[in-house]
Simulated scan of single mutants.
Amino acid sequence: MTKSAEETTTLEAPEVAAYWAERRRYIERIRKVPEIRNRFWREVGIYLLRRLLWSFGFFPIMIAFWVPFVLSSFNPVVMAADLIPLLQDFVNSNPEIQATTISTVLIAWASIGFFFLVFDFVLTPFRSPYEYEADVYMRSWEQLNHDQLPDKV
């Protein structure tokens, strides 16, 4: 004999509510622990530094060197032969053109960096140490309270 969906949800609802209530209480308790609070802020800083270095360091540099390298058919001699006249023209140009070129390069760098930063935040969200501690605690809580909770279907 099978139970209806209504009976199944009424059995699981108290278990789910108890789980999330205990998780909330535990997170509220551990937010007051100075060691975990310090670890939280250190991990926030490391996370932001990694995302910024990855987005503004790796991707713009990779694109700036990889695209010309591909266009030169992976031949560094051809790439250098194409870039040397451009660099000579830049050095020999007047300061206004040099300033415009530098600002264009910086705008391109920033736009590529911000583009990848947004996607980096979406693809690799921050994992809080509070959440990690709560996950560990809730695994043990489930094992301790398994006999008191209603049977799962």
Rank of each mutant, 00 (worst) to 15 (best):
E43Y: 13
E43P: 02
V44Q: 12
G45S: 11
R50D: 04
L52A: 08
L52N: 01
L52T: 15
L53C: 09
W54T: 08
S55G: 01
G57H: 12
G57C: 11
G57M: 09
F58T: 07
F58W: 13
P60W: 04
P60I: 03
M62I: 06
I63W: 09
A64V: 07
A64H: 10
F65K: 10
F65L: 10
W66K: 11
V67I: 14
P68C: 03
F69R: 02
F69Q: 02
V70H: 12
L71V: 06
S72C: 06
S72E: 03
S72P: 03
F74H: 15
N75Y: 03
P76G: 06
P76K: 09
V78W: 10
V78N: 08
M79W: 09
M79Q: 11
A80Y: 05
A80E: 15
A80G: 13
A80H: 14
A81S: 05
A81G: 10
D82C: 13
L83W: 11
I84C: 03
L87W: 15
L87A: 14
L87V: 06
Q88K: 14
D89S: 12
D89W: 12
N92V: 07
S93F: 07
P95F: 04
I97V: 07
I97A: 15
Q98K: 08
T104N: 08
V105R: 06
V105M: 14
V105E: 01
I107T: 10
A108E: 01
W109H: 06
S111M: 07
S111Y: 01
G113K: 11
G113M: 04
F114A: 02
F116V: 03
L117I: 02
V118L: 08
F119R: 09
F119W: 15
D120G: 15
F121G: 01
F121S: 01
L123C: 07
L123F: 15
T124F: 05
P125S: 14
P125A: 15
P125Q: 06
F126E: 00
R127Q: 14
R127C: 15
R127I: 13
S128G: 03
